[in-house]
Amino acid sequence: MSRDGGSPDPRDPALRVEALEALLREKGFLDSAQVDAIVRHYEEEVGPLNGAKVVARAWTDPAYKQRLLADGTAAIAELGFGGPQGEYIVVLENTPRVHNVVVCTLCSCYPWPVLGLPPAWYKSPAYRSRVVREPRAVLREMGLELPGEVEVRVWDSSSEVRYLVLPERPAGTQALSEEALSRLVTRDAMIGTGRPCAGGDTSGG
């Protein structure tokens, strides 16, 4: 990352962002401590673990699941999660016959409070354009083979709505606690491009 000398390139994005932040601070629009806190929040505190807790709660508490499907934002707030890009979250339930998968075809909209910031592939032109046209092929390439009788529904995030997929609870997990279940829930399962880890009865705890 460090330079060996010579003049830095004015097109260098790091330089432009540094200048931009300094100017906005000088103008009184910005407090760098606030920027530090935001970055720390999204690097360290918010991530798919939040969504995993939501899913595990829905798997173990039928009344919660009902509330979650009726009003995602409110039910997610019950667990203490909310904030930017979480103002209107719709939860999509996978069933043996329907598999949901989420995309943002125009940019990168994503439910930050429950999944954190999106992975690179979610923002890539290839995923954004292809998953709409040929979802089964894309999912297969990502390691998710769906039986032909399963209907695939692709949901395109709009300027308002963010989606969270509620995956099916893996078989053989009846004995697991809510906490243990949450460890089976992957980020990709909540986007719809993967499945929860197979449960079995080995995880314990």
Binding site: P13, V17, L20, E21, Q34, V35, I38, V39, P84
Partner: peptide, 11 residues
């Protein structure tokens, strides 16, 4: 720089 840009935008 990506994280600073993100943070500045959100702030």
């Amino acid at each position: 720089w990506e994280s600073r840009l993100f943070g500045v935008t959100l702030a």
